[in-house]
Amino acid sequence: MPETDPSITPPCVACGSDAVIEGAAPSYGGSASLKITVYTRPKSALRDSLVGRKSVASDGSARVCGDCGYVMVYADDPRTLWDGYIDQLANDLED
Rank of each mutant, 00 (worst) to 15 (best):
M1W: 06
P2W: 08
P2K: 03
P2S: 02
E3D: 01
I8H: 03
I8P: 00
P11M: 04
C12Q: 02
C12P: 00
V13L: 06
V13P: 01
V13S: 04
A14W: 12
C15M: 05
S17K: 03
D18T: 06
D18L: 08
V20L: 05
I21A: 09
G23C: 04
G23H: 14
A25M: 05
A25K: 07
P26E: 15
S27Q: 10
Y28H: 07
G29P: 01
G30V: 05
S31R: 06
S31E: 11
A32P: 00
A32H: 13
S33H: 14
I36H: 10
I36A: 04
T37E: 15
V38Q: 13
V38P: 01
Y39W: 15
T40C: 06
R41D: 11
R41V: 08
R41Y: 10
P42I: 10
K43G: 14
S44R: 09
S44T: 14
R47D: 15
R47P: 01
S49M: 15
L50Q: 11
G52T: 11
G52D: 15
G52N: 10
K54I: 12
K54G: 14
V56M: 07
V56Y: 12
A57E: 11
A57I: 02
G60M: 13
S61K: 07
S61A: 04
R63D: 13
V64D: 12
C65R: 06
C65W: 14
C65L: 11
G66R: 02
Y70S: 07
Y70D: 12
V73A: 09
Y74A: 01
A75M: 09
D76M: 01
D77T: 06
D77C: 01
D77L: 03
D77K: 05
P78M: 09
P78G: 06
R79C: 01
R79W: 14
T80C: 02
T80V: 10
T80K: 06
W82M: 03
D83K: 02
D83Y: 11
G84E: 13
Y85G: 00
I86C: 03
A90Q: 09
D92Q: 07
L93P: 00
E94T: 00
D95Y: 03
